[in-house]
Amino acid sequence: MSAAAPLLEVKGVTLQYRVGNVAVTATYRVDFNVEQSDRFVILGASGCGKSSLLKAVGGYLKPTEGSIKIGGRAINHPGADRMMVFQEFDQLLPWKTVRQNIVFPLLATRKLNAREADDKAMHYINLAGLERVAESYPHMLSGGQKQRVAIVRGMAMEPEILLMDEPFAALDALTRQRMQDELLALWDASRFTVLFVTHSISEAVKIGSRILLLSPHPGQVRAELNSLPRPQDPVASVALQDKIHQLLFPGEETAQS
């Protein structure tokens, strides 16, 4: 009996964009697969093309070479099967409450009626512990709360894969750690599939069950680390961070995040 096909297949993907008359190569022949319920992290330094890869998976950027498929279907445009969470705080509609921000895309797809959309929104609001701010407007929320709402809005759409582009990068260190914990708690509750981009080694180790390491510009696969447990003690975490740092930056001695 053959193994099930991966949820997401990225094969030989080269991405280019133009700066004036010059073609800049962001990634070169990148391959990876994402399985159902993976917490798959793309890790690399700034400029390695990891955000460009996420945009290509989202259908916003067409590969120059190679293919991207989800569920065996070629990705040619954005779709509700792939929801994206960005790092910017201002992803929410300022004139709508938290509940209304989550309901809005559910209604826009025309798959649910108003009551069904509201029930689903409240389910995810409760799951994320946002009940107390459900009727608050974005300007009344902290940065961490806004990001939590953006994540929950994506989850409520129940996409095949949730795409996260450095979603916690603009938060202060303590809020960032709390949001990482909350993302993992949400994943434990519903086991959604997430493709997460970061330049932080420590964040990749904390979030990822699998980590793809990209070389500096243009991004090429340097290594893939699979079946990673969540490090339960600081020593194991630091050891894994050191290993990743050595793979990304040969010749340097200590991990840096």
Rank of each mutant, 00 (worst) to 15 (best):
M1D: 13
A3P: 00
A3C: 01
A5Q: 15
L8E: 07
V10G: 03
L15P: 05
L15R: 06
N21F: 03
V24G: 01
T25P: 00
V30P: 01
D31Q: 05
V34I: 13
S37Y: 05
D38W: 01
D38M: 01
F40M: 13
I42F: 08
I42N: 04
L43Y: 09
L43A: 06
G44Q: 13
A45I: 06
C48T: 01
G49S: 04
L53F: 01
L53D: 02
K55A: 08
V57Q: 04
G58N: 08
L61T: 13
K62G: 00
P63E: 12
E65M: 05
E65K: 08
S67M: 10
S67T: 15
S67A: 14
I68K: 01
K69N: 09
G71V: 10
G79A: 06
R82C: 05
M83A: 12
F86L: 14
E88P: 00
K96I: 00
T97M: 05
T97N: 03
R99C: 05
Q100I: 00
F104A: 10
P105K: 02
L106H: 03
A114S: 14
E116N: 09
D118Q: 15
D119R: 10
D119K: 08
A121G: 09
Y124R: 04
I125V: 10
G129E: 09
V133D: 04
V133M: 13
A134D: 11
E135M: 07
Y137H: 11
M140H: 14
M140R: 15
G143I: 09
G143M: 11
R148F: 03
R148V: 01
A150Q: 11
V152A: 02
A156M: 03
A156W: 03
A156H: 05
E158D: 10
E158Q: 15
L162A: 07
L163G: 05
L163Y: 08
L163M: 09
M164V: 07
P167I: 11
P167G: 09
A170I: 00
A173R: 11
A173S: 14
L174S: 03
L174G: 00
T175S: 12
Q177F: 02
Q177Y: 04
Q177E: 13
Q177W: 00
Q180P: 01
D188K: 14
R191N: 13
L195I: 06
V197G: 03
S200C: 04
K206T: 15
I207P: 05
S209A: 02
R210P: 00
L212W: 05
S215Y: 02
G219W: 04
G219A: 09
Q220D: 02
R222I: 15
A223L: 08
E224Q: 15
E224S: 12
S227R: 14
L228K: 08
P229Y: 12
P231K: 10
Q232Y: 00
D233K: 12
V235H: 10
V235L: 09
S237R: 14
S237M: 06
A239I: 03
D242T: 12
Q246P: 00
L247G: 05
F249A: 08
G251H: 13
E252V: 11
E252A: 06
E253T: 14
Q256E: 13
